[in-house]
């Protein structure tokens, strides 16, 4: 997994609530058996004017000029600004894979759906919750300033705006630690093999039908 320490990135605003993972990456792209290559189909139904299918050359498809990520000023964005309940619906990890493959490294929103939030951390993508007023303030700042960038410091748990304002954010200590180091969860868990085996024996004795 990619480490996440410091990020000074361009911000793109996606001003709608309840953005679901079907919108982030539509179902036809879930037929892939690979973990990469989803970026060109991120927000496919909003981003293009035609219908997308796996295997098509996306560079030849007509872009929807009204979709915010297609605006020239947001090209190269690494921070996505969103509203409440971002990533709701399906558990598909293809959603963070698509966001990451497109180039996003962090998402700032009022709130996130639980499974999506969790999936982000497995892919070096930092989801940050801020208060609704702070998110509102950032939406206004992005709209008013072309090339608006924010500096995210995971170690310090801060977001610094160009006007000098600093927003503090919460992140669970364990997740932060893993992200800062780019650690693989499975490798970490396998350090506790003996404890898992001991638990398993105890569990088997208590509920033998689970192992029948």
């Amino acid at each position: 997994m990619n480490k996440f320490t410091l990020l000074h990135g361009l911000v793109a605003p996606l001003d709608r609530a309840n953005v679901d993972t079907d919108a982030i990456i539509p179902k036809q792209f879930l037929k892939s058996i690979k973990r990469s290559g989803f970026g060109p189909n991120l927000f496919d139904e909003w981003r293009y004017l035609d219908h997308g299918e796996p295997g098509r050359d996306n560079s030849r498809r007509p872009l929807n000029p009204d979709f915010v990520l297609n605006q020239p000023r947001y090209q190269g964005a690494q921070i996505l600004l969103a509203r409440e309940n971002f990533g709701c619906g399906s558990s598909r990890e293809h959603a963070p894979w698509a966001l990451e493959d497109y180039g996003f490294r962090a998402i700032i929103a009022t709130s996130f759906a639980d499974i999506f939030f969790n999936n982000c951390f497995k892919n070096g993508l930092l989801p940050i919750r801020l208060a609704a007023e702070q998110v509102d303030e950032l939406f206004k700042a992005v709209a008013a300033n072309v090339g608006y960038r924010l500096a995210i410091d995971l170690e310090q748990q801060t977001i610094s705006a160009p006007n000098g304002k600093v927003y503090e954010f919460e992140v669970e200590a364990f997740r932060k630690h893993c992200l800062l180091n780019g650690w693989d969860d499975i490798g970490l868990t396998l350090q506790h093999v003996d404890e898992i085996k001991a638990y398993e024996e105890k569990h088997r004795a208590a509920q033998p039908w689970l192992f029948a």
Partner: peptide, 16 residues
Amino acid sequence: IGTSEVEHVMATQCLL
């Protein structure tokens, strides 16, 4: 769960 967690459960029978 997401696919990374599917792999985690497959390999460790556990989830964090």
